[in-house]
Amino acid sequence: MGFKLLSKLLVYLTASIMAIASPLAFSVDSSGEYPTVSEIPVGEVRLYQIADGVWSHIATQSFDGAVYPSNGLIVRDGDELLLIDTAWGAKNTAALLAEIEKQIGLPVTRAVSTHFHDDRVGGVDVLRAAGVATYASPSTRRLAEVEGNEIPTHSLEGLSSSGDAVRFGPVELFYPGAAHSTDNLIVYVPSASVLYGGCAIYELSRTSAGNVADADLAEWPTSIERIQQHYPEAQFVIPGHGLPGGLDLLKHTTNVVKAHTNRSVVE
């Protein structure tokens, strides 16, 4: 069995187990497998329904001669939608809004960016022009300005110390501490036991640490421990890039980060 097929099978099995364990909360999309990078042309966006009122959005972007996937989250909030992270750029984010209108038909009224990198804030200006209120932590807003990236308009308070959590509509926002970046936030959907790890969490097929220019490698494993301790009931975990899975993604990420750190020390 090929690795790609095995990865998709694991996603399907995880979703099936969740649907059985929580039949009222989960209505997993039966329309197909989780979209992969090879299936999404740059400039297009796919939506994948995880649970009743919960979707991931998947886009792709060219970077350094390669094409990478990027995940975000959409959560229903009454007759409105909360968006977590842009679709990595203005063109993708405009396509995301169009796809949401086509498939869901509810307005996106608020959006949260989970850290300051372009795959999370690139497209904020498109959201703002569409009347979406954009939010991020003060740290993310400051770092985005320093980096020359787009800056969300509103500040999220109460997320300055490791372990801080605040309720934001249908989700809980959690600051686990520094990891992929010093400002990275985690998003949890309690009604569906869905954990969105953003770039602080890796997919299972990833074996290298990737972009760690703004990471705190020493603190990252401790931050992941905080996530595990705060959300032990999480059933569906979405990484910032690639295929979702279960809580095993947290341990896998820790292993990859520690291996990278150990290699760096040896070198």
Score class of each variant (00 low, 15 high):
Ala59Asp: 07
Gly2Asn: 10
Val166Pro: 05
Val132Cys: 07
Val194Lys: 01
Gly78Val: 08
Val266Leu: 06
Leu173Lys: 00
Ala178Asn: 15
Ser30Val: 08
Glu203Ser: 08
Thr134Tyr: 04
Pro41Ser: 13
Arg76Glu: 09
Gly210Trp: 06
Lys251Tyr: 05
Ser181Thr: 07
Asp79Tyr: 14
Leu243Gln: 14
Ala218Trp: 08
Gly122Asn: 15
Ser137Gln: 07
Trp55Ile: 07
Pro239Glu: 01
Glu44Ala: 13
Ile20Asp: 05
Ile58Lys: 04
Ala66Lys: 10
Leu96Cys: 07
Glu99Lys: 15
Val212Thr: 10
Lys251Cys: 03
Gly240Ala: 05
Ala51Leu: 13
Lys102Gln: 13
Asn262His: 05
Phe63Leu: 09
Leu249Phe: 02
Glu101Tyr: 07
Ala192Glu: 04
Lys102Thr: 15
Arg128Trp: 07
Glu39Phe: 03
Arg110His: 14
Arg167Thr: 03
Ser162Asn: 12
Asp29Ile: 11
Thr254Phe: 14
Val257Ala: 10
Ile100His: 01
Gln103Ala: 08
Pro152Ala: 11
Cys199Trp: 00
Asn211Pro: 06
Asn184Gln: 07
Gly148Trp: 06
Ile74Gln: 01
Trp220Met: 10
Thr14Asn: 06
Thr36Leu: 05
Val75Gln: 02
His180Thr: 00
Gly43Gln: 10
Gly198Trp: 00
Gly245Asn: 11
Leu83Lys: 01
Arg167Met: 04
Gly210Ala: 07
Asp214Tyr: 14
Tyr34Thr: 14
His230Asp: 08
Leu9His: 03
Ile238Leu: 06
Ser38Asn: 06
Gly123Gln: 00
Phe168Ile: 15
Val75Asp: 01
Arg120Cys: 09
Gln61Ile: 07
Asp64Ile: 07
Gly242Phe: 02
Leu47Lys: 02
Leu24Phe: 14
Glu147Trp: 06
Lys91Tyr: 12
Val166Asn: 04
Ile58Gln: 07
Val126Leu: 13
Val265Asp: 08
Ser7Gly: 13
Ile74Gly: 04
Gly177Met: 00
Asn262Val: 06
Gly245Lys: 04
Tyr231Ala: 06
Tyr34His: 14
Arg141Phe: 08
Arg76Asn: 04
Tyr231Asn: 14
Val194Asn: 00
Tyr135Ser: 07
Ala98Lys: 00
Asp119Met: 00
Ala213Ile: 13
Leu243Trp: 09
Leu204Lys: 11
Leu173Cys: 06
Gly242Ser: 02
Pro244Glu: 13
Val28Asn: 14
Ala66Gln: 08
Phe3Asp: 12
Ile238Gln: 08
Thr114Tyr: 00
Glu219Lys: 03
Tyr68Glu: 06
Tyr135Gly: 01
Ser193Arg: 12
Asp85Met: 00
Asp64Leu: 14
Phe174Gly: 02
Tyr231Gly: 01
Lys258Pro: 13
Ala218Ser: 10
Asp183Trp: 01
Leu82Asn: 10
Val11Phe: 11
Pro69Val: 06
Glu233Ser: 09
Phe63Glu: 14
Ala178Leu: 10
Gln103Val: 10
